[in-house]
Design a protein around this nucleic acid. Structure first.
Length: 265
DNA sequence: ATGGTAGAAAGTCTA
């Protein structure tokens, strides 16, 4: 059994207390981190290594930054999304045992119609192409990250309000859907279908969302979105035992605005 | 519609 989690930590240096607590409490085998927000030489390796993790980092000053933590050795590390012209640290991929993993930080997109929004759509295009390549290998593959898209209205606390809004627009959803069309499986959706057939009550539970804005008391009102996802290749999906969202860290002192999503293979 | 909060870093920029 292998527990793999993804977490947009919103600055690893500001979040060390929460990260170490969460690692000790939940003992994931692999962690895919986003928004570490520091250069590789600034990364706080030691306290994480002391808990038994190997670490691979793709860092950047102030913004972005992705990393992989793993109890087992990390092999064949790739930094940067193949096929995308960009200097931003938004993609790191590696092989751990028989599983290929990636930590992905899709651009936020700022506002619909902006240059950054176009870059977000371009990122999805390159990601779709690369995922299609990886899928052709027939491996167990877990691509986790902050995709910055709520795939359906079921993933938004107020669908009406989010119609044609950033994170829920048809264009962004088409970008995310293209990954599923290529053959990837949304792990949480696989276990908790939108129609509620697996668990009728789950979509109304607070655990369902992965991000709550810092502003306007969003967490207290449960005004959240599900924008962090674990996408699995069919071979990984066949091995999927369970999936969940760790809501607790959002209520801790100095929280990230995102919470971890995990799966057991 | 605006601006609300948080992080990095010292200006605002990004989310």
């Amino acid at each position: 059994m292998m527990k793999i989690a993804t977490w947009n930590i919103n600055s690893i240096r500001a979040r060390m207390e929460s990260l170490l607590r969460w690692l000790q409490e939940t003992a994931p085998d692999v962690v895919l981190l986003q928004e570490t927000k520091c250069l590789e030489e600034q990364f706080p390796y030691e306290p994480i290594e002391d808990l038994g993790y190997n670490i691979a980092v793709f860092g950047q000053k102030s913004y972005n930054g992705v990393a992989i933590l793993s109890k087992k050795p990390i092999e064949d590390v790739t930094k940067g999304l193949p096929g995308l012209e960009s200097t931003e640290a938004r993609y790191i991929e590696a092989v751990i045992g028989t599983v290929r993993v990636a930590s992905i930080y899709v651009p936020n997109g700022q506002d619909i119609g902006t240059e950054k929004f176009a870059q977000k759509l371009a990122f999805f295009k390159a990601l779709q192409s690369h995922m299609a390549t990886l899928l052709s290998y027939g491996e167990q593959c877990v691509m986790g990250g902050d995709y910055n898209v709520a795939p359906t209205d079921a993933d938004v606390y107020d669908p009406e309000k989010f119609q044609n809004r950033l994170l829920a627009s048809p264009e962004e959803r088409a970008g995310f859907q293209s990954l599923l069309n290529a053959g990837m499986v949304d792990a949480l959706r696989a276990q908790f279908p939108e129609d509620g057939s697996a668990n009728r009550s789950f979509k109304n539970e607070a655990r369902y969302y992965t991000w709550w804005d810092y502003r306007q008391g969003s967490f207290e009102k449960n005004h959240g979105l599900r924008i962090d996802h674990l996408l699995l290749s069919p071979q990984a999906s066949d091995a999927l035992k369970s999936v969940g969202i760790d809501r607790d860290p959002r209520s801790w002192d100095k929280p990230s605005d995102h919470v971890p999503v995990w799966c057991h293979l």
